[in-house]
Design a protein around this nucleic acid. Structure first.
Length: 590
RNA sequence: GCCCAAGUAGUGUAGUCCGGCCUAUCAUGAUGCCCUGUCGAGGCAUCGACCCGGGUUCGAAUCCCGGCUUGGGCGCCA
């Protein structure tokens, strides 16, 4: 192998163009592909900017040609040569109008045959990609994603700086949290038996920074949650976390809209019109069955409980008697595309969300078809047809169950059908703020109210009185930004009054002692003058999925974890030595 | 914790339902040779694989049981 010697790059591969013809250039990079024609060798040279064809010609420079015969894929080389206009241009290639005739070749490193191809859309398994991530990241699409992520961070930092935010770091070694996701724990060597937790978010620290008078804080920060993974969930992920003093809901939303607008403009050259639309939590649940509606298509849900209030049909009757509801989603004019087999697949689909079944009505060739029509009265059928405005070719799917199951199942079904029917345009971005979240939700498992957002979220002013009397109907000063059915960010105005915070803890079922033990430092800080404040956190990884049109979070993270939270490249997590465990005061299991 | 899908040369696959004709298909790759306008280069030759463990059977890539790994989903994710 050789060194670069005195050679230094004058140009990047992908930047060369007709403007460089006849110039002498030095470029360096990886051999994408060598094509030998005997006395003439072509090679595509790759660096982060792209590919350029280099030519080794016996008639031009025989020394370079002879060395080039040993070149193989992924060898690292430095070449000096002359840019020439091509005889036959390759218009599929960004630099296809030119090529570089090589007069000096230095082979800086060789390479074994790579276990995966270095090209996009290579069909290689996720397992191989992750094990050889350093090679996977050589692919243009992955480099493009990571560069876009880098640019997004820069746009964010510029915006935050220009708007008076201060970037302040908060600890990674912090205190286990009682509510919320499972913590990743870190044993303390000098405090045997005690543990730090990695932060699920810097929530309390950023609030304390407001108490400190830092006015506006932000951080692009890693957060950790020891929960099961999904296509858009990693155990460690990155948030743009921000907090502002002396603000209410409108101020936070207004600032963040401008940030979103700027990101989409500068990163993707997409115009986002402000203000972004708003929707209350209640409306979102009623119409879309979830608090992160995908608004790129219709298929709204309809509550049809009223129609069946006196029904004799047992399945509906008992549902209503037990406090459940009946909702449906109507699919316009495509009844014929739903075969019996297709419908039974959808039924199986909704069952994964807890629905007991999926009823349907199909109106085709003037005939109403339904597996349950014989159980319903003519009045009920007519009322249903009328209220849903069912026309020729329509089909409606119905789920009857308790409200959460109905919303869950039909909310997912409308998305599933939209996907099946290819209704979703990947290049549109439908954004919506979801507001007026409930402050609490009831946890059957714990038999108490838990915070819907988190325990530091302020109730809306009008609902303050109901904190004790009717917690279930209290709304929160909380808001989520949803893009294309994905929750991209969320936040709230915080409680800044010690008394109110104590009432909140009480409503959540904490005793004073528990509250003091878990959040004493916050309550202590609240004794000393707290400005009104609130903020928001964006899931940066999910935002990058949007911006890069990725359907998987791993494609926007350089070194992600697998579904079982391991890293196939480093083989983390790993067993450690008994010595290390003993030092940490952890009993060694024999 | 649960459900679903997958695991065959370096890589991607066919074969698996219905066991034997599998000495396992094809593509790509790698290696060597030929070739001065290729760019999905071409031609000739060669190389290379049934996830692990157990079982059924005369016989298992194929059937059964257990496990591991990867992906998707439910629960979970304040």
């Amino acid at each position: 192998m050789e060194t670069m010697g005195k050679l230094r790059r004058t140009n990047m591969c992908g930047d060369l163009s007709m403007n460089d013809v006849n110039k002498e250039v030095v470029i360096m990079g990886w051999v994408q592909k060598r094509r030998s024609l005997g006395g003439l060798i072509f090679a595509d040279l790759r660096d982060i900017t792209g590919l350029v064809q280099v030519v080794f010609d016996t008639d031009y420079n025989n020394d370079a040609f002879e060395k080039a015969e040993s070149l193989r894929s992924e060898f690292v080389v430095a070449v000096k040569g002359e840019v020439r206009e091509r005889q036959s241009k390759n218009l599929d290639m960004a630099t296809g109008e030119i090529e570089v005739y090589i007069k000096e070749l230095k082979i800086l490193d060789s390479s074994e045959t790579p276990p995966i191809y270095i090209k996009d859309n290579d069909d290689v398994s996720e397992q191989m990609r992750l094990k050889y991530r350093f090679l996977d990241l050589r692919k243009p699409s992955m480099q493009k994603n990571l560069l876009m992520r880098s640019k997004t961070s820069k746009v964010i930092r510029d915006f935050m700086y220009d708007n008076g935010f201060n970037e302040i770091e908060t600890p990674f070694l912090t205190k286990p949290t009682p509510e919320g996701a499972r913590d990743y724990l870190v044993p303390s060597r000098v405090n045997p038996g005690k543990f730090y937790a990695l932060p699920q978010s810097p929530q309390l620290f950023k609030q304390l920074l407001m108490v400190s008078g830092m006015n506006r804080y932000y951080q692009i920060v890693r957060c950790f949650r020891d929960e099961d993974l999904r296509a858009n969930r990693q155990p460690e992920f990155t948030q743009l976390d921000l907090e502002m003093s002396f603000v209410d809901v409108e101020d936070v939303i207004e600032l963040n809209e401008r940030l979103i607008q700027k990101i989409f403009k500068e990163v993707r050259n997409i115009d986002v019109n402000l203000p972004i639309k708003r929707m209350s939590y209640q409306v979102a649940m009623d119409k879309y069955g979830c608090d992160k509606p995908d608004l790129r298509f219709g298929y709204e849900l309809n509550n049809i409980s009223e129609i069946f209030k006196d029904t004799e049909f047992n399945a509906f009757k008992s549902t209503l008697e037990n406090g459940g509801i009946i909702k449906c989603v109507k699919i316009d004019g495509s009844a014929e595309s739903f075969s019996k087999k297709g419908i039974s697949k959808l039924e199986k689909f909704v069952k994964t969300y807890g629905a007991k079944g999926l009823a349907w009505f199909k109106f085709e060739n003037g005939v109403l078809e339904s597996p349950i029509s014989k159980f319903l009265s003519e009045n009920e059928i007519n009322a249903l047809m009328k209220s849903l405005n069912i026309k020729e070719g329509d089909i409606a799917f119905i789920v009857a169950d308790k409200e959460s199951v109905v919303n869950n199942a039909l909310g997912a079904l409308r998305i599933e059908i939209a996907h099946d029917k290819n209704l979703i345009d990947e290049n549109t971005f439908e954004m919506v703020w979801i507001t007026d979240f409930p402050l609490f939700e009831y946890s059957e498992e714990e038999d108490r109210y838990v915070a819907k957002h988190h325990p530091f979220t302020a109730p809306v002013d009008e609902d303050l009185d109901k904190l004790e009397s009717d917690p279930g109907s209290c709304r929160a000063k909380a808001y989520d930004i949803v893009i294309n059915g994905d929750e991209i960010g969320g936040g709230s105005i915080r409680i800044t009054n010690r008394e109110l915070q104590n009432r909140m803890f009480k409503a959540l079922g904490f005793t004073q002692e528990e509250a003091d033990e878990k959040f004493g430092f916050l309550l202590e800080a609240f004794k000393y003058g707290v400005p009104p404040h609130g903020g928001l956190a964006f899931g940066l990884d999910r935002l990058m999925m949007m911006l890069t049109n990725s359907d998987n979070i791993r494609d926007v993270i350089a070194f992600p974890k697998t579904q079982s939270a391991s890293c196939l490249m480093t083989e983390a997590p790993a067993f450690t030595s008994d010595k290390q465990l003993k030092e940490l005061g952890i009993n060694v299991v024999e």
